[in-house]
Design a protein around this nucleic acid. Structure first.
Lengths: 298, 298
DNA sequence: TGCCATTGTTTCCGAAATGGAAAAACTCAA
DNA sequence: TTGAGTTTTTCCATTTCGGAAACAATGGCA
């Protein structure tokens, strides 16, 4: 039977991208890493890593094996935590992937509150707007905004996402407010990253609007700043511009139209029979933080 | 990090019910088993097994740990098979639980056909009418007849189950055929195991009939024999009495009534990210064997 | 009640494995 | 070409591992 240490070493080599680096983080000499990888490959009868002395890459078999090994290792971690009676406490490292903007605005400020209840837990948070493969990249969970897709992941809805059209009072004063959807064509529209098709729902059903404007960027933060500065009309989420709406820095336009309703804020994690406590607790924390009506909607 | 051998040994001790027996099947001396179990418990800081010199029982922590360990071990098995390129072939031992009657009539006759395509596979088949906990009992999958329940198991529908009322021509000749549902009260009814409430659906909606008759048994095989012998009217599945209906040994009565439609024949298995090939292939085999219209319906 | 077969545990010892240092082999970039 | 950083191989000391034997404890059976 395969040695578990070999699997752990293999996983670390993949995640660090080098045998020496894996050795350093695990406290082994490079010689040991090399020997264990070789032994694993011999036992499986397959090459897992294609290696030169300067870099390492996964073979196809190695990639599939790696995906599986990650699940096995967290499974063992969870089983040990369970048996040790630590099953109700978060412990170890919790690796989270989250969208940049949302993460900065609505996750980061609440982290200390969670951490002070779970002193044995370390958090690794990566903010990115790429839809990463959380299992391949070794995340325990991710926070996602989007339409729910079927996959091998389990999604738990945290909150609905409302998107509405808005502009600054300043802009409205200069350009007037549109009263019908067609008038958008005469306005500056500010599309955002991954959002150059505005799916809108209104009294007359739904439509897709292709906003065209003077500013194109992949950063929703820039769009956000631009609309506040009066550069045009944008379709923004309430979690993003809730305070500005309340303070009057922004006003909603065409309030009868909203973004497509089938967007949700969700926590996703790999399908597992036994969910580690750290994941369960963090998702619960976010769910109570945001739900049933998110504070940014109030 | 926990040694994988310890987990394997622990699992074997639980499944065999004794350290010595586990040692014998794994090729270790009892001394080794004892030491490894002790080491595992020390590392977890919990007692997993309550033991006297004559028998062993799981503690609560041990039970939960065992459930998890089984999943981990099959996960490792699957990962190794994948990396070794054996992922598309069935290999190892496939442990199946199935209902006694159905298993004998509709699984057993087809096993050789499956086995000759998969020479590296050994089958362990347990026929029982108890709804066993397949993960705790170490089964890879089970064939079930019933209403689909939500659980941690994944169910794949293999075929619908039709149940209808039937009797022997002989019985009909002696007692006449009922023409309305109420007339069942004047007939001998033969309830079967787990089936003493007949949920029937007919032209006037659905009803539940409590059959009362001269024969009470937990063996559906006995009921089957009895109805063929002319002892009364029974509610039987088409997979059970299809040949008798065709040959005329049995005839349907009250054909406007059938058993509740939400019964299905399904294959169930623990929810896993990566399903072992042996399980996938066997379920596929059964699905093509029975579907889309089962041969016993034709 | 008193064997006694069976089981779990401990101790000790030889065998096997593991990890590390050093050197060798190698790649890539400057 | 050189040099830094990497993987691999070769030994060697150390640790771990497995088994035999002795011991302890339990429960069935006469």
């Amino acid at each position: 039977m395969t040695n578990l240490g070999d699997l752990e070493i293999f996983a670390r080599v993949v995640s660090t991208g080098s045998m020496s680096a894996a050795g350093r983080t695990l406290g082994f000499s490079p010689a040991v890493i090399s020997k264990r990888i070789k032994r694993l490959e011999d036992r499986l009868g397959t090459r897992l890593l294609q290696r030169t002395t300067r870099q390492i890459s996964l073979t196809e078999a190695g990639q599939g094996f790696y995906d599986r090994v990650l699940g096995i290792l967290t499974g063992i971690e969870e089983a040990e935590a369970y048996a040790s009676g630590r099953s109700s406490q978060a412990q170890g490292v919790l690796r989270i992937s989250a969208p940049t903007s949302f993460g900065r605005m609505h996750i980061a400020p609440h982290l200390t509150g969670f951490m002070k209840d779970h002193l044995d837990l370390k958090l690794h948070i990566v903010l990115t707007d790429d839809f990463t493969d959380i299992v391949a990249d070794g995340f325990d969970m991710a926070v996602r905004i989007g339409e729910l897709t079927d996959s091998s992941l389990v999604a738990r809805k945290l909150a609905p996402v409302r998107r509405l059209l808005c502009a600054s009072p300043d802009y409205i004063a200069r350009n007037g407010a549109p009263t019908e959807i067609g008038e958008l064509a005469r306005h500056f529209c500010l599309p955002a990253h991954n959002n150059d098709n505005w799916k809108l729902e209104g009294p007359e059903g739904s439509l897709v609007w292709h906003p065209e404007g003077p500013l194109v960027t992949n950063s929703s933060e820039i769009v956000r700043a631009a609309v506040i500065a009066g550069a045009g009309i944008a379709l923004r989420s309430t979690w993003d511009i809730g305070p500005e709406l309340r303070s009057g820095q922004l006003v909603q336009v065409l309030p009868q139209w909203e973004g497509s309703k089938n967007l949700t804020l969700s926590a996703v994690y790999p399908s597992r029979q036994f969910l580690p406590a750290k994941v369960r607790l963090f998702i619960d924390y976010l769910a109570t933080l945001y739900g049933p009506v998110p504070y940014w909607e109030q």
